[in-house]
């Protein structure tokens, strides 16, 4: 049980990598990249977890009355989500343009250069 959450993160990351390498569709590849990224959310939140702890928000919890989970990794996970969303948006915009210019979204057919 002690390492299971970390191994889940590894599994999700590798599944995403496998999808990226064998992808036949760029939109599918962008989705696989998002899967890889979600592994980092699992890893970060697993690192910050503490048994029996609550959220690090003290609006309705008396400070010091209960243990709280690590807020630093939660903030990092938030950064991760934002960066992930922007990267996905930018990549999808690129896919839209590739599809228009080349008429295909299969990465294997995108071998020729075109101005």
């Amino acid at each position: 049980m002690g390492v299971l959450p970390y191994l889940v993160a590894v599994w999700i990351f590798l599944a995403g990598c496998y999808g990226l390498a064998t992808s036949r569709n760029l939109i599918h590849a962008v989705g696989c990249l998002a899967v890889c990224q979600s592994a980092t959310y699992v890893l970060l939140l697993a690192v910050g977890y503490r048994d029996g702890a609550t959220a690090p928000v003290f609006s309705d919890v008396e400070p010091g009355s209960r243990p709280v989970v690590d807020p630093v990794v939660q903030a990092l996970a938030l950064t991760d989500v934002v960066v992930g969303a922007t990267v996905t948006a930018l990549l999808l915009a690129l896919v839209v343009q590739i599809s228009k210019r080349h008429g295909t979204v299969d990465p294997d057919e995108l071998s020729e250069l075109r101005g």
Binding site: M1, L4, D51, D70
Partner: peptide, 15 residues
């Protein structure tokens, strides 16, 4: 992963 601090541990100096 096997070398990471255990899941749910009580040591979170930065936190």
């Amino acid at each position: 992963c096997l070398d990471l601090p255990g899941f749910g541990g009580d040591r979170h100096p930065y936190g």
